[in-house]
């Protein structure tokens, strides 16, 4: 079985000034994740390493670089899932954790639960020696300025979703040499979100899903729309019905656009090693590694290739 790893850095209207940094970020994360697979590591290990690299990169809205909620605080969501056992761990609305994906993994491995939220997730983090970091270390100057600029806009409860604000989500999917698939997704959510808002990222079947029988998916885009169609699970159900990874992703994103007017993106890997990176937003930074070839792109239809050193 030849190993594959795919990452995304969020599907949204990525402005030109962030374009290069986004592409560089996903390429680096994909290579880091793939090096785990190359050493014989598991798919779960690989997606965690790849997502940690993206969380540590301030270009992306996850971990360092997260957006601020209405109260100017950082609340993070993450999920990780092991396709071999369907074991899953997730955290929602956890405060000030540098690598929420690793906390999600601890929920999977060290508790009998699948998901911990808010203060309870922070208490668990503390109990296993993961300490919180000050908000200032997670929030960039750029984000603080954007937040200040936007915070007066919506005082009402119902806001319009503006894709420009959706500095979105990171994720990874992998297939290891033993044939196991896994996914991981992590996010700071959407800027100016209500306190306690949980988007799709931490929700099983929406932000991600992994099953050795069908494949692994990580999603990004307008969270509430992804939730409504349970996008990750929808893509895998189409694969179960015999569609290719590309067809399944395109059909499902199309359905999300038609039915609930939402745009987004997804990365998918199948147990046979087929993979796809698909989106209906203006852009999505993505990168994939298979057999020492690095693929990547940002604009629709873009698919660039680099040979990695053996």
């Amino acid at each position: 079985m030849s190993a594959v790893l795919v990452v995304h850095g969020g599907a949204w209207a990525i402005p030109d000034e962030l374009a290069k940094a986004s592409v560089d970020g996903v390429k680096t994360a994909a290579c880091e994740g793939f090096s785990v697979l190359k050493r014989g590591g598991s798919a779960v290990d690989a997606v965690e390493v790849a997502v940690r690299a993206l969380e540590d990169n301030t270009v992306f809205d996850a971990g360092h670089g997260a957006v601020l909620n209405k109260d100017g605080e950082v609340e993070l969501d993450a999920i990780i899932m092991d396709g071999r056992t369907l074991a899953t761990g997730a955290v929602s609305s956890v405060k000030n954790i540098a690598n929420p994906v690793s906390l999600a993994r601890a929920v999977m491995e060290k508790t009998s639960h699948v998901m911990l939220t808010s203060q309870g997730a922070n208490l668990f983090a503390e109990s296993i020696g993961i300490s919180t970091v000050p908000t200032e270390t997670l929030v960039t100057e750029y984000e603080r300025r954007e937040w200040e600029k936007h915070k007066n806009y919506n005082t009402g409860v119902i806001e319009d979703f503006n894709t420009q604000w959706a500095h979105d989500t990171v994720g990874a999917v992998a297939l290891d040499s033993a044939g196991n698939v896994a996914c991981a997704t992590s996010t700071g959510g959407i800027r100016n979100k209500m306190v306690g808002r949980v988007g799709d990222s931490s929700i099983i079947g929406c932000g991600g899903y992994a099953d050795n029988f069908s494949g692994a998916v990580s999603c990004t885009g307008h969270g509430e729309s992804i939730l409504k169609v349970t996008l990750a699970r929808l893509i895998l159900s189409k694969i179960e019905q015999g569609k290719s990874v590309t067809e399944a992703s395109q059909m499902s994103l199309q359905h999300m656009g038609d039915r609930v007017k939402g745009a987004g993106g997804a990365i998918v890997v199948s147990p046979s090693g087929h993979w796809a990176a698909t989106f209906t937003t203006e852009r999505m930074a993505w990168a994939a590694v298979e057999q020492d070839v690095l693929w990547y792109g940002l604009d629709p239809g873009e698919r660039l290739k680099e040979q990695l050193p053996q």
């Binding site: 609305s93 808010s118 409860v157 949980v198 509430e224």
Partner: peptide, 19 residues
């Protein structure tokens, strides 16, 4: 019915209830 979100958690959900 009243927010643009689909899920609110913990203290945030209680804050919304108060509002």
């Amino acid at each position: 019915d009243k927010t643009s979100h689909a899920c609110l958690t913990a203290e945030g959900a209680n804050q919304f209830a108060r509002s």
